[in-house]
Write a protein that binds this DNA or RNA. Structure first.
Length: 804
DNA sequence: CCATCCAGTGTTTTT
DNA sequence: CACTGGATGG
């Protein structure tokens, strides 16, 4: 069943290409569009090439031109080119651009895609070599965790000490390094008393039994196959005449091996990357891969793209200043012809809420065009945060002021509870042996099938060596289940049978009996012709829709809405199975909403994007650079954080605004922080320090920004102010020095007793006042100007401590 | 079997 | 604080 078309097409095309190869190359106008470095990279078609492409240097342009050039010179047919990206977005864009350059759609590029998508295609063809059937399912993280939990329980391991999440992380790490259970080095294995490898081994067996893979397996299995089956490898080495890789700095060991194996014959491999933008070390990416390229492929041509077409000189200079702090770089210096533009703007705030408030106002100001540059559309602006929890403050604020925003890469559509439940139903219906899916839905909605009943099913299934669904059937037949749940279970099983029959009628039956089914499959019920309708029926008849209709919680309507969307999304697919495949790999939720919106996303999600105006909030030590990253990976971690800063700044075309807050709510507790060390690394001649607005509003409180309160000029040169110097002193020598203590006194709950009724205090907004009552951290204060108010202690300070 | 309450725990980053 | 998992009682 699975398509040989890409290859058959290849065979035919290959013959055709022989003749076209003999032809003289057609004129190539696209070459004139390139700068010398780009052109060099595009024209170096044979042999290994490393394209070191800095941010905004036209790397995608070069890459797509290269593909077009390969086609145009007749060196390769579309299906002879293997072009790998990391994200679906990147793959899509490349496809579009190639299509545009060719003047027609680039459907002929079946091997342009993500590592994972390409590996799935290959693995479906060779699944049997690793003990799978070609219709294997791909588990997501959620299933993975549940599977591991079962194994942990079965092994009597204390889940407190070894949480499933952690084990999953360890196993993922091993897979990223292309280690099968047997290949995990003893030194690694012993770190977990060899229990880890034991679980890993069991986990892999279980996956095989379930005819399933996880994400890491897709690559691992292919590497295994290539290593063990020379003939298969040789076949692909021949098929893929030219290989191109985007974001090479993000490849992990498994991906690296995969590439090296495939390129092993002709070595026509072109890797594009930027060591300064390597930000995925935490998930196994090895910067070493790119740093080592010339050793791996001796004689490789190295081309540097250094002319930046994106950002203004100030922004570039700021970014360069930061990244300069890293060691062991391949070395690139970006330059640009662009006009000077605005300096990078820096501003400190009292706390995170105020930062969000200020950013909201700035966004509106930029939109109105009152910030010195032309009015910008909301689409032209982005807020890039280090960690997703930072998004909340902005969402809250934007909601209250009615500023439209979109969160990119947030909690994804397909990861929502109701969507995953619905998907589990679809999975059971398309592949009845999918035990994980069955488990998920058997008692959702509640069918009176609790732990005991489910265990019963498990045991029966295991005894008979069949799937859970079959186990349930047997259990029912044997009468091994008592009254109440029995009826419901029977209804469910019958329902699945019914739906499955229809699904098979749609042509999604497992390969073995596909023919039989098409011949003599049951006639679908009247009116039930499309898989879209089938999906709706499944959700309705199973009681799942009803479950949410009866749910009175505020999120229930939204969930029903999402389910509707899900069913609608099915329209663009042939059948349920096609849809499931799509979802497991293409988890992006690009709701192409045309309304103008500000984008909010993590720095990681922003890689590869660009915006005229970029906000980089939360530059505080511990948050960015993240404490955890530094604790876990030390200097390496810090350097990765610094690269993240570099990525962030280089997203900006015209306006780049960095901000930090003195106080932030963490775990519901107020914590104070110092400005990020990366702020110190910004070259001051390229930075303009802004004064926070408001009477005494914001500022970095008692520390550096204080000087600006004295200097009423709105563009105080903070770098040369005593306040800034002092702050730097403190940062390097005594991180929690005096001004910090002052603040802690105010924040720290234990220090609240520092206030007494009658004491004169100061508040950011309300000014001076007297405390009239104290309850917990809430103070009643009679303000001199604003009158009596109830205020949380953190917002006030003793009048004696007011620094001006 | 299910709903509810409590305690403990965790926040990077994701194909 | 917000979410989860476990314990408890109906």
């Amino acid at each position: 069943m699975s398509s040989h078309d890409e290859f058959d097409a290849f065979e035919g095309a290959a013959r055709a290409s022989l003749s076209s190869r003999a032809m003289a190359a057609r004129p190539a106008p696209y070459l004139d569009d390139l700068n010398p470095a780009q052109r060099e990279a595009v024209e170096a078609l044979e042999g290994p090439v490393l394209m070191l492409a800095g941010a905004g240097t036209g790397k995608t342009k070069a890459l797509t031109s290269r593909i077009v050039h390969l086609l145009n010179t007749g060196k390769a047919q579309p299906n002879e080119i293997l072009a790998v990206t990391f994200t679906n977005k990147a793959a899509r864009e490349m496809k579009n651009r190639v299509g545009r350059m060719l003047g027609h759609a680039a459907e002929g590029m079946p091997w342009l895609g993500t590592f994972h998508a390409i590996c799935v295609k290959l693995l479906r063809r060779h699944a049997e070599l690793v003990g799978l059937k070609s219709n294997f399912t791909i588990l997501d993280t959620d299933d993975q965790i549940r599977l591991l939990k079962q194994l942990i329980a079965a092994n009597n391991i204390d889940e407190k000490r070894w949480p499933a999440r952690m084990i999953a992380g360890i196993i993922d790490g091993w897979k990223n390094r292309a280690w099968t259970p047997e290949q995990v080095p003893a030194s690694e294995a012993s770190a977990y008393n060899n229990r880890g490898t034991e679980i890993y081994d069991q986990y892999q067996r279980r996956l095989r039994d379930l005819n399933a893979t996880d994400f890491g397996d897709l690559l691992l299995h292919m590497v295994t196959i290539f290593q063990k089956h020379e003939d298969v490898l040789a076949q692909y080495q021949r098929w893929f005449r030219y290989i191109m890789v985007d974001e090479y700095q993000d490849t992990n060991v498994a991906q690296y091996l995969w590439l090296r194996l495939l390129a092993g014959g002709h070595r026509n491999i072109c890797c594009v990357g930027d060591d300064d933008q390597s930000i995925y070390g935490w998930r196994g990416a090895e910067v070493g891969n790119i740093l080592r390229f010339e050793k791996d492929f001796p004689g490789a041509k190295v081309v540097r793209l250094e002319q930046n077409y994106r950002s203004t000189p100030h922004i570039l200079a700021a970014a360069s200043g930061v990244i300069r702090g890293n060691e062991g770089r391949l070395g690139k210096e970006l330059w640009t012809d662009a006009e000077e533009g605005e300096k990078v703007r820096l501003i400190g705030h009292w706390d995170g809420d105020e930062e969000a408030r200020w950013v909201g106002e700035e966004v509106e100001a930029l939109q109105r065009g009152t910030r010195g540059i032309r009015p910008l559309s909301l689409d032209a602006m982005a807020i890039l945060v280090r960690a997703s929890h930072q998004m909340r403050a902005f969402e809250d604020r934007f909601l209250t002021i009615g500023l439209p925003y979109r969160v990119i890469g947030g909690p994804r559509f397909y990861e929502r509870l109701e969507i995953r439940d619905a998907m589990a139903y679809f999975r059971v219906v398309t592949s009845p042996e999918d035990d994980l899916a069955f488990e998920r839905i058997v008692n959702t909605p509640k069918r009176g099938l609790g732990d005991k009943a489910q265990q019963n099913i498990q045991v029966t299934a295991r005894q008979h060596g069949v799937s859970l669904l079959e186990g349930a059937r047997i259990l029912l037949a044997e009468g091994g289940i008592s009254g109440k749940g029995a009826g419901q279970l029977r209804a469910l099983v019958e329902g699945i049978d019914r739906w499955h029959a229809v699904a098979r009628w749609h042509g999604v039956a497992p390969a073995e009996d596909a023919d039989a089914v098409i011949e003599e499959g049951p006639t679908p019920p009247k009116g039930l012709v499309s898989h879209v309708e089938l999906a709706q029926v499944i959700l309705d008849e199973s009681g799942y829709t009803e479950m949410w209709q009866n749910d009175k919680t505020p999120e229930a309507p939204g969930r029903l809405e999402n389910l509707k969307e899900l069913v609608k999304a099915l329209e663009s697919f042939e059948n349920l199975q096609g849809f499931l495949e799509h979802v497991s790999l293409i988890m992006d939720n690009e709701t192409e909403n045309s309304e103008e919106k500000v984008s909010i996303m993590t720095l990681h999600a922003a890689k590869g994007l660009e915006f005229p105006a970029v906000f980089l909030p939360g530059w505080e030590d511990g948050l960015f650079p993240s404490q955890r990253s530094m604790d876990e990976s030390g200097l390496k971690g810090l350097e990765e954080e610094r690269r993240l800063a570099y990525v962030g700044i280089t997203r900006a075309e015209e306006v780049c605004t960095i901000s930090f807050a003195g106080n932030r709510r963490v775990f519901g507790q107020w914590q104070s922080a110092l400005p990020s060390r990366f702020i110190d690394e910004l070259p001051e001649e390229h930075v303009e320090v802004l004064t926070p607005p408001g009477l005494y509003g914001g500022g970095y409180g008692a520390a550096g920004m204080q000087s600006q309160l004295h200097d009423k000029a709105s563009r105080a040169d903070v770098y040369n102010s005593p306040g800034w110097k002092r702050m730097q002193e403190r940062q390097t020598h005594r991180p929690m020095a005096q001004p910090q203590e002052v603040r802690n006194q105010v924040i720290d709950a234990s220090a609240i007793s520092a206030y007494t009724v009658g004491e004169r205090v100061f508040h950011q907004k309300f000014g001076y006042g007297c405390i009239t009552a104290i309850e917990g951290d809430k103070l009643d204060i009679a303000f001199e100007k604003a009158g009596p108010k109830k205020v949380v202690a953190k917002f006030i300070m003793s009048a004696d401590d007011v620094p001006f």
